[in-house]
Simulated scan of single mutants.
Amino acid sequence: MSGIRVALVDDQALFRAGVRMLVESQPDLTVTGEAGDGVAAVELAARARPDVMLMDVRMPLLDGIAATERILADADRDGRTPPRVLVLTTFDLDENAARAIRAGASGFVLKDADPEFLLAAIRTVHQGNQVIAAAATR
């Protein structure tokens, strides 16, 4: 059975570990790799070819929005199917939701979202739909 391949990108190792445990608890989801900064995220996308990338906004070397733009442009240039990018942040009143969507992200979720909401968001963006956390649009 092939499931949804998920890549985790966040500069906080403990957060990645928690999300990894959550994702891998699901029979239809598999973690294909992790990155701790935006530059490593671009390399991970090309190497692991995930279906969905969970992308932190604020990271060293290259932020999540710039990394998203680069990942999608690289996939387009190389003729690959681009991953769906689900942007994660702790900042609910910040303009990053709109910036992420303009960059090509498929969704925007707050890091304090309910675990079931995050899992549903992964599946939703994988199906080609967008997810925007309501608190992020205030």
Rank of each mutant, 00 (worst) to 15 (best):
R49I: 00
L22H: 14
V39R: 10
L22D: 14
R20Q: 13
L44Y: 00
G38C: 08
A41M: 05
T32C: 04
R16L: 13
A48D: 01
P50K: 04
L29I: 08
P60C: 02
L54F: 03
R58Y: 07
A17C: 07
M59W: 08
I65S: 04
V52H: 05
G36Y: 07
L61H: 15
A46Y: 01
G33D: 04
G33N: 13
A40Y: 03
A67Y: 13
R47F: 00
A67G: 10
D51L: 09
P60T: 05
E43A: 14
R20N: 09
V57W: 09
D28A: 12
V19D: 11
G64Q: 04
G18D: 10
V57K: 05
V42Y: 09
E43V: 07
L62Y: 02
V19I: 14
R58F: 04
P27N: 15
L61R: 15
A66P: 07
Q26G: 10
G18A: 12
A40L: 08
M21K: 15
A48L: 01
E24R: 13
A35G: 02
A46M: 01
L62E: 04
M21A: 15
L61Y: 11
M21W: 12
L54P: 00
E43D: 13
L62C: 03
M21V: 13
R16F: 08
V23N: 02
S25Q: 15
L22R: 10
I65N: 06
G36H: 02
V23I: 13
R16A: 07
A66K: 12
L54Q: 02
A35E: 04
S25K: 14
E34R: 00
V31N: 13
P60Q: 01
V31H: 07
G18Q: 11
V42A: 03
V42C: 06
E43G: 09
D63S: 04
L44I: 05
M59D: 06
M53T: 06
R20M: 09
M53A: 08
A46H: 05
L54W: 05
R49G: 05
G18M: 12
D51A: 07
V52G: 03
D28M: 06
L62A: 02
R58C: 04
V52P: 03
R47P: 00
G38Q: 00
P27A: 14
V39I: 07
A46N: 09
A66R: 14
V31G: 11
F15L: 07
M55C: 13
P27T: 15
D37G: 12
T30Y: 01
D37Y: 12
T32E: 05
A35Y: 06
F15Q: 12
A67M: 06
M21H: 15
G38N: 09
D51G: 12
D28C: 11
Q26W: 08
M59F: 03
A46R: 08
L54R: 01
A67C: 06
F15V: 10
D28E: 14
A41S: 11
G18T: 14
